[in-house]
Design a binder for these strands. Structure first.
Length: 878
RNA sequence: GGGCGCGUAGCUCAGCGGGAGAGCACUCGGCUUACACCCGAGCGGUCGCAGGUUCGAUCCCUGCCGCGCCCA
């Protein structure tokens, strides 16, 4: 085992250089087995299975989002002492993978049929060994804390046993059946597709209205797919449609074909749409299929599996569907049968999600899952709270889907996948075979040629990966999994299928307690990223440039529940700046002897700044903990960012400088610094594991932040001290006002300005004289102190007068402008307060505390006006 | 066509009944002994439009306009 020791304090380089460190650090985590689950540990389980990426895939920002959020959840639970497991793996992606290999073969002018099934499948395995699964290496770059010893692949032997077992059980329970139905067919991939493998988007087509029959017997129908008229076996109208009463039950002639087809009355026809009459092509349209079934119409197929017209009995046989569309239309036109045309006619057209070919609805013999009972169980699991969907608003969509789900086509006319375990016998026998059963053999027996939809095996993922159907220690420990994290756009792909199968196979126990749905990553203008728009960003390029932590931080910071986020290199650069800031701040603390092992100073010996930052740390710890528990990644990350940068760095570290220079407070300050950074780095570790690992091990000498305990209330025992916090806020205001004056007077920091702070003791800030002077770069008044200007700062207990010797005339115009703005603000405040208080209904009905608050604000505004007005009057005329 | 969601600073987004916020961008000044991937100060908004409820509405209700997503 090669083990790189964590850097010691003194070894921390001046600059955080993630590219040099991340790889070795990740390997060290893996080598030490930090990410490995251990069911025998006696710890409570926390488990997440990866939403399996395609074996053909490479890491894109969608994965980066999934993985970042999952890793945050898992790392936190691990730190909390859980047996935390994140199980990695991939699915075999039937169509996509077969396409990749077929494309390679095509460069040599070959098809899979030149090799035969077994040899082709071997070639796909070869491809996988050589080029598949590149995403697994990319996951390491992101820092994914997965258990590599448990990596799974849907086509592995164990998972294949699970698939076969599941098929057999469902088949025996009559939840899988074979039937001739209209399915989505991809004429290029030559396979059936399920509903979710079809993407609908608008295409420019045509809407053509055709007159069928002649004279009294004529009727006009409209279609976007003219060529399908060759397969028409009827025309349907609504039974109550007065226009067509005389035609119902009669036959009219189908143009070009010459066939006599009936006019049928069907309730499902919308009489208000178009002419109210629809052509019926039962073999090539799902609605027409149903009409055909109801009226016993013939169902001739007139397109083959490549989308070529076949067996139409016309001269159009042999034409591709699109060529036929044109040819048929022109022939109809020549016969004077076209009564209207709309072109372009923009309408939604289904496309194969893998190759974008226009999908053809086609009558075909396929295997289906009878989803109704399974989907109901999935819906019930959410309805009764066994599984919770986050954010809750998306539950409705889940219910809409499971309550209206069509039966699922699971057979695919492919070779790469789990072959359907059904054997057909010579006398029409149909036998489903379990994994340990001997398939029937002998004359006339043969196995189904098709394979199962990849999603069939993915649906088993939350338990097949733990050894199901065997009763394993992993299965007992890790099922049900704790959380499933995925994008809302594929809610139905993963969640519904896994829910249906998990509930069925695991005795009604759903596969996950929580489903966390995040949105899409869009570009900096909120546009969807797509290759065609050229606005995609490669996460690996971002990691190369800014480090994995920066990418993770950006994603975590943008991940509001269920809503999309924008991302650009600028955002990631900002996150990189944050990691750099953290690096510099922690190094500063360490170089000043920050000591996390030293006891915090007694309460009585803590400075206001100490009390304030410790109190804030306690609040931030509590908020971060609660937010992460509730999957509110963005707010948790935002809170840590604000605390780190705006409070710890901008104020506490600055206030610590004079404290460190003073022997009375130096030791306590080192303890506070050590304590705050120790806690903060652990809080940040799940989000930015690399930089926090380097800093935390450097600061504490601990083995690894990965296995450091998650901060609890005991770690941050200090109660928020409101009095101290109030005094810190007061000096912040005082300091900011002086800085504002200096800026507007054009007094650069270097320029020595002597000043006298009058009234500091009276407002209880006497102890902060040095801090205020340090942070405003004011010098103590000397013998020749001659104030030329006064800055008045109204604070809770009174007004502090800062008399400054600017060594010369002040810029009266700038001062007048500054005071003018203050006056305007105060006057506006007074006006608003007066308006409210002058309304008797307000003072009667509004809660007392609200009224009191307004009164107080009015008093402050009045005082401000008086004070500022006096200052303005005292300014020399210019 | 049905359902859902969103319109808040130039951009991306929080906030969601009583004083308009963040990051980035922008302006001005600074290489101040952790950090120029930085520090300090600042500019910037009739909170889509129109009604209603309320003492009070960016926030609740209704309608309209615009945008997006899912399903037909």
């Amino acid at each position: 085992m090669t083990d790189t020791l964590p850097p010691r304090t003194a070894d921390l380089p001046a600059k955080w250089n993630p590219g040099e460190v991340e790889g070795g650090m990740y390997q060290r985590w893996v080598d030490r087995g930090y990410f490995e689950g251990d069911p025998a540990s006696g710890k409570p389980p926390f488990s997440i299975v990866i939403p399996p990426p395609n074996v053909t895939g490479s890491l894109h920002l969608g994965h980066a989002m999934d993985h970042t959020l999952i890793d945050i959840l898992t790392r936190r639970r691990r730190m909390q002492g859980y047996d935390a497991l994140w199980l990695p793996g991939m699915d075999h992606a039937g169509i996509a993978t077969q396409n990749v290999v077929e494309k390679q073969l095509a460069t040599d002018g070959k098809t899979r049929h030149d090799f035969g099934r077994d040899q082709f499948v071997d070639k796909v395995w070869d491809w996988k060994a050589e080029s598949g699964g590149s995403i697994l290496g990319q996951m390491r770059r992101l820092g994914d804390g997965v258990d590599w010893s448990r990596e799974r692949f849907t086509l592995d032997e164990g998972l294949s046993r699970a698939v076969q077992t599941m098929f057999k059980r469902l088949f025996d329970d009559d939840l899988i059946y074979r039937a001739e139905r209209i399915i989505n067919w991809c004429p290029r991939c030559h396979t059936a597709l399920s509903d979710i493998e079809v993407d609908h988007h608008d295409d420019e087509g045509e809407l053509v209205s055709i007159r069928y029959g002649d004279g009294e017997d004529s009727i006009v129908v409209a279609t976007t797919r003219v060529e399908t008229m060759l397969g028409d076996t009827g025309v349907a109208v609504h039974p109550d449609d007065e226009r067509y009463q005389h035609l119902i039950g009669r036959e009219i002639e189908l143009p070009l074909v010459g066939r006599r087809i009936p006019v049928v009355a069907d309730e499902h026809v919308d009489p208000s749409f178009g002419t109210g009459a629809v052509k019926v092509t039962p073999a090539h349209d799902p609605n027409d299929f149903e009409i055909g079934q109801r009226h016993n119409l013939p169902m001739p197929s007139i397109l083959d599996d490549s989308g070529v017209v076949t067996n139409s009995g016309t001269r159009f046989d042999g034409l591709d569907r699109f060529a036929a569309r044109e040819a048929v239309r022109e022939e109809l036109r020549a016969q004077g049968r076209i009564v209207a045309e709309k072109r372009p006619y923009v309408h939604a057209v289904g496309h194969c999600s893998r190759c974008d070919t226009v999908v053809e609805p086609r009558l075909s013999l396929q295997w289906f899952v009878r989803v109704a009972p399974l989907a109901k169980a999935a819906g019930d699991a959410v309805r009764d709270g066994r599984t919770t969907i986050h954010p809750k608003e998306l539950e409705k969509r889940f219910f809409d889907w499971v309550d209206n789900m069509h039966d699922w086509t699971i057979s695919r006319q492919l070779w790469w996948g789990h072959r359907i375990p059904v054997w057909y016998g010579p006398n029409g026998e149909v036998v489903a075979v379990g994994p340990d059963e001997e398939p029937p053999s002998g004359e006339g027996w043969h196995q189904d040629e098709d394979v199962l939809d990849t999603w069939f095996s993915s649906g088993l993922w939350p338990f097949s990966t733990f050894g199901w159907p065997e009763d394993t220690a992993d299965l007992r420990q890790y099922y049900p999994t704790s959380v499933l994290v995925t994008g809302y756009d594929i809610l139905f792909f993963w969640v519904v299928r896994m829910m249906m199968f998990g509930l069925y196979a695991m005795d009604g126990r759903p596969p996950f307690e929580h489903v966390v749905l995040h949105g899409l990553i869009r570009d900096q203008f909120g546009k969807k990223m797509s290759k065609s728009k050229g606005n995609t960003i490669d996460p690996l390029a971002l990691i190369d440039e800014f480090g994995a932590d920066a990418l993770r931080f950006t994603i975590a910071r943008g991940a509001n529940p269920g809503s999309d986020m924008s991302l650009s290199t600028e955002w990631v650069a900002g996150s990189r700046n944050f990691t750099t800031k953290l690096w510099n701040a922690a190094r500063f603390a360490m170089s000043n002897g920050a000591d996390p092992t030293a006891p915090l100073p007694d309460e009585s010996r803590r400075t206001d700044a100490d009390r304030w930052i410790l109190g804030r740390l306690a609040e931030v710890r509590e908020e971060t903990d609660a937010l992460l528990e509730d999957f509110q990644f963005s707010k948790a990350t935002e809170g840590l960012y604000h605390f780190t940068w705006d409070e710890l760095c901008d104020w506490y570290l600055e206030l610590a400088k004079p404290q460190l220079a003073d022997e009375a407070t130096a030791e306590g300050t080192r303890a506070v610094l050590g304590h705050v950074f120790d806690t903060l780095l652990r809080l940040l570790h799940p989000i930015t594991p690399f930089v926090t690992e380097a800093l935390w091990t450097g600061l504490t000498g601990g083995e690894s932040a990965v296995i450091a305990p998650w901060p609890t209330a005991e770690d941050t025992g200090a109660r928020p001290d409101e009095a101290a916090a109030g005094r810190v806020e007061a000096i912040q205001k005082l300091i900011t006002e002086v800085r504002r004056f200096r800026t507007e007077q054009g007094l650069p920091d270097k320029r020595s300005v002597a000043a006298k702070l009058v009234g500091l003791d009276e407002v209880g800030l006497g102890g902060h004289r040095k801090a205020v002077a340090f942070l405003t770069r004011l010098d103590a008044p000397g013998d020749e102190f001659a104030p030329t200007a006064t800055v008045e700062v109204a604070l809770a207990g009174g007004t502090v007068h800062v008399e400054l010797d600017t060594s010369g005339a002040i810029d009266v115009a700038a001062e007048r402008a500054r005071l003018g703005r203050d006056l305007a603000a105060a006057q506006k405040e007074l006006e608003q307060a007066d308006k409210k208080l002058g309304n008797p209904k307000f003072t009667e009905k509004a809660p007392a505390n609200v009224v009191e608050g307004i009164r107080a604000r009015r008093e402050v505004a009045l005082a401000d006006i008086e004070r500022v007005t006096a200052r303005l009057a005292a300014l020399p005329a210019s």
